[in-house]
């Protein structure tokens, strides 16, 4: 099993490994600031409940997506952050792909860097998982291809100037040169839908969450790299 970092150039590998030059670290630094700032009517910061992120958040991102007991549904890390904003901070949810949400998510996920991805499958998330696996293997779009056709059967091969990766999400949120920004795993997956000429599910859609869960299970054991750098 190979992380996406093994399919990129020397330049990008060096850029990801350089904690100063890695542009994703700007989002991590911003997330660290937001972590300490009070928000919403609750007037609480993330730190007010969770303390020092390096301690409280270590390993957390590696276990997402998971079923939130209160909400009784599958949530990814972004969703979990917005649940906190709603319940504890009484603040508006942060928009998908907003700089603030990406920064906080990158900061929280960064606390798990090096921790192996490990989601637990149980009765609560079994259906989500099965739907995710089914979608991963289902042909979609005008290209009539499934995720598996590229990322299980064709990884390592060239698609134009691109080397097809195994499609693991362990580096996300990641900085993509193509985006000139940090983006979420859902944004990356939506780009795959676009490439297949398939209708893109909206951010936060159940099918994207299902797919994220299946991908996390499939990437089990790979270390979290956030913030990764990709082409």
């Amino acid at each position: 099993m190979k992380s996406g970092i093994e399919f990129v150039s020397d330049d990008l590998r060096k850029l990801q490994a350089d904690d100063f030059a890695n542009p994703g670290m700007l989002w991590v630094a911003r997330g660290e600031k937001i972590w300490g700032e009070a928000a919403g009517n609750g007037g609480k910061s993330c730190a007010a409940c969770h303390g020092v992120a390096a301690k409280s958040m270590q390993g957390v991102a590696a276990r997402y997506p998971r079923v939130d007991p209160g909400a009784a549904r599958l949530v990814n890390l972004e969703g979990r952050i917005n649940l906190c904003r709603d319940r504890k901070q009484q603040a508006q949810p942060l928009g998908p792909e907003s700089d603030e949400l990406l920064a906080l998510t990158a900061y929280v996920a960064h606390q798990s860097r090096g921790v192996p991805v490990s989601v637990t499958l149980d009765m609560q998330n079994r259906k989500d998982f099965e739907r995710g696996r089914e979608l991963y293997n289902r042909r979609i779009g005008q290209m009539n291809l499934a995720c598996t056709h590229c990322h299980d059967r064709s990884w390592g091969k060239k698609l134009a100037a691109e080397t097809v990766s195994q499609g693991h999400g362990n580096a996300f949120p990641a900085y993509r040169l193509e985006w000139q920004s940090v983006g979420s795993l859902q944004r990356r997956i939506r780009a795959c839908f676009y490439g297949l000429r398939a209708e893109m599910p909206p951010y936060g859609a159940q099918e994207l969450l299902d797919l994220e869960l299946y991908l996390a299970w499939r990437a089990g054991g790979l270390p979290v790299e956030t913030p990764g750098v990709r082409r």
């Binding site: 698609l159 100037a161 193509e178 944004r187 780009a191 676009y194 893109m200």
Partner: peptide
Amino acid sequence: VTESACLDAT
């Protein structure tokens, strides 16, 4: 200069 094959529309 080479380009990524995987673009997105967002």
